[in-house]
């Protein structure tokens, strides 16, 4: 529910929220857990039974606690929206998420910084999944056109026995600016993780991604995947890392960087570490220009090179 004196602010954020692919009417529904942050204020929130939601203001941002109680399966995705409408400043968002035993929740988070000229957003999210909990977290970003946004998104997740976690970070619709994504996941016995980052870079955007799987529990398994489409004079550094620390732990890391333009500067480092002979880790990495056969197939049907690239990239980053 929107606080009455923040109605106008909500409307502005909602406009960009929708541009980034969200449905803002969800924030008005009583059956959907939601929280909207603008600058350093929580301007709207709603929760349902079994989900505890607390928030407090910080000097430059907000701190949020969200707990899904044991056995609660939250039906509708939990909606988070973090906005910052001013061109300058910094925003710190701390999110503590906990899912109880066998609890289940999906999160849809949108960050909209449509006017940022000299703006820094720092998000630190710690996630705790109890035994057999299931959580998915999807983070979609919408930034300003002039590349003046700096984002640091840090996720630290601990996955209890048999829990399942899926985390995706997408920044594919607007300029990036400067971005650092760090996703670290610690997995207990038989836990499953799938983490993924997809970024489309333009002009002089800069991206740094670190994805790390710590497969500490027996038979835990995880996939860490990054896809970056780098154009113009953008730069990207990507590290995908996996530790196989327990018997029958299985991990796969994958990095795909597609480059277009003579001035890009991209790099990737896959890192695999095994501490148990029964663990199994694999990796796949590629850097290169767009698949020529794909391009030619679409161009032979009458798409221009740029139209073909857009379609291919849209598919890859989906």
């Amino acid at each position: 529910m929107i606080e009455s004196n923040y109605q106008r602010e909500f409307e502005k954020i909602a406009e960009y929220y929708e541009k980034s692919g969200g449905d803002a009417s969800r924030f008005l529904r009583r059956d959907i857990v939601s929280i909207i942050v603008s600058g350093d204020k929580v301007i709207g929130r709603n929760t349902v039974e079994g989900v505890e939601l607390k928030a407090k203001g910080l000097e430059n941002g907000v701190e949020i606690w969200l707990e899904v109680k044991d056995g609660i399966q939250v039906e509708n995705p939990i909606h988070l929206c973090t906005g910052y409408l001013k061109p300058e400043g910094t925003q710190l968002v701390l999110i503590h998420t906990k899912l109880g035993k066998a609890a289940k929740a999906n999160f849809l988070s949108h960050c909209v910084f449509p006017n940022g000229k000299e703006f820094t957003h720092r998000m630190i999210s710690d996630i705790e999944l109890s035994e057999s909990a299931k959580m998915s977290y999807e983070d979609v970003h919408f930034h300003s056109k002039d590349g003046g946004v700096t984002v640091e998104a840090i996720y630290n997740a601990h996955l209890g026995e048999k829990s399942v976690f899926r985390n995706t970070f997408h920044l594919t619709k607007t300029r990036v600016g400067k971005l650092k994504v760090e996703m670290k996941v610690n997995l207990d016995k038989e836990a499953v993780a799938e983490i993924e980052s997809k970024v489309y870079e333009k002009q002089d955007d800069y991206v740094e991604i670190i994805e790390e799987l710590n497969l500490n529990g027996e038979r835990s398994s995880g996939i860490a995947k990054s896809v970056v489409f780098a154009t113009d004079s953008s730069k990207a550094r990507i590290i995908n890392r996996a530790y196989g620390n327990a018997p029958y732990a299985r991990g796969h890391i994958e990095c795909k960087e597609i480059v277009k333009g003579g001035n890009v500067n991209v790099g990737t480092i896959p890192e695999l570490y095994v501490k148990d002979e029964k663990a199994e880790l694999t990796h796949e990495a590629s850097i290169g220009r767009m698949n020529v056969k794909q391009l030619e197939t679409l161009m032979a049907k009458g798409l221009t090179e740029n139209e073909a690239i857009e379609l291919i990239v849209k598919g890859m980053l989906k």
């Binding site: 794909q294 139209e307 379609l311």
Partner: peptide
């Protein structure tokens, strides 16, 4: 002029609907 390749390429994330419509074009 157009060509259907002997071994057509695959596209990740593009549905048959989008493909046949050439992304809407």
């Amino acid at each position: 002029i157009t060509l259907a390749l002997q071994e057509p390429v695959r596209f990740e994330g593009i549905t048959i609907d989008e493909y046949l419509n050439l992304g809407g074009k």
